[in-house]
């Protein structure tokens, strides 16, 4: 694969850079001119009101939807630019091997057991033998609290468990970057808290960069280092920064109101958005 970049470069270059990205379905523009950067080892949150295109943004970043304009850079390398002549699919697949994705619904392969789900990335991309894979699978499932569920099918477990199994699969190859689409939606508060702790542990111990789409305020304040706020109305990013700063110092009252869960008294509500 590509040679390891020099260390100085590692420290300065953003891990992921989204550059003037426009997202559109047919003629309908969902978000325009969105730019932000995610630094190495950071937990980055994409937040925003419902329907603003948070999940769609994630799909642009992981290669499922082609941007109408703009690009995403991984370690300075263009994701959508690709090599001329082809549509760049192979190039994107090579980059996408660096990341793991947890989908909103878990998206476990329904014809496979949990063990097979977690094992598939390993059998595809590592030289581990069957026993080693089985041990790694047991570890990954244990990390998300699903010890002993190896031989269950996705349809036999609850939604929250499916989500955690999806996380175990996303972590299968110890990816540099983890993309999580609403990881705590539908989880009870305790499981949600445990998931936050797990994400922090993964970042602290494996140095993973984590990009999370969520609007769970408790999670956002507990783990986010940096965030971007996508606005459904103006259809662009209206705030960047650490949510703990944004809550009182964001320029846009909508962002402050969002982070305060609307509980800011009448004075703020009266300010025009």
């Amino acid at each position: 694969m590509e040679p390891a970049p020099p260390t100085s470069y590692l420290a300065n270059e953003p891990r992921i850079a989204v550059r003037t990205l426009d997202m559109a379905f047919g003629g309908f523009v969902v978000q325009r001119d969105v730019s932000f950067t995610v630094r190495r080892g950071e937990i980055f949150v994409i937040m925003g009101d419902s329907g603003c295109g948070k999940s769609t943004m994630l799909k642009h970043m992981i290669g499922l939807i082609r941007p109408a304009r703009g690009d995403v850079l991984y370690d300075g390398e263009s994701f959508w630019g690709g090599s001329a002549g082809s549509d760049g699919t192979d190039h994107r697949m090579a980059i996408s091997r660096r990341f793991g994705v947890l989908f909103q619904s878990g998206a476990l392969w329904s014809s496979m057991t949990l063990a097979e789900n977690v094992a598939l990335p390993m059998t595809l991309y590592t030289d581990l033998d069957a026993r080693e894979v089985a041990e790694m699978v047991a570890l990954k499932l244990a990390l998300v609290g699903l010890r002993g569920f190896e031989e269950y099918y996705p349809s036999e477990i609850s939604g929250g468990m499916r989500k955690r199994a999806g996380l175990a699969r996303a972590m299968a190859l110890d990816p540099d970057i983890l993309f999580l689409d609403e990881p705590s939606a539908g989880l009870d508060p305790l499981s949600s808290r445990r998931l936050d702790d797990l994400i922090l542990e993964l970042r602290d111990n494996l140095g993973s960069t984590v990009v999370i789409v969520t609007h769970e305020l408790a999670s956002i304040f507990a783990i986010a280092d940096d965030a971007v706020f996508l606005d459904a109305e103006s259809r662009t990013a209206i705030a960047h920064g650490n949510p703990r700063d944004l809550i009182d110092h964001a320029e846009s009252p909508k962002v402050r109101e969002f982070l305060h869960r609307g509980e800011m008294g009448g004075e703020m509500a009266a300010t025009p958005a």
């Binding site: 992981i62 990341f99 989908f103 619904s105 392969w109 329904s110």
Partner: peptide, 20 residues
């Protein structure tokens, strides 16, 4: 029906992002 359900359930997206 199988592949359609997999599409609806994001399972095909999960394969694509795995580079398969």
């Amino acid at each position: 029906a199988q592949l359609g359900t997999m599409q609806a359930n994001e399972e095909i997206d999960a394969l694509t992002t795995l580079g398969v």
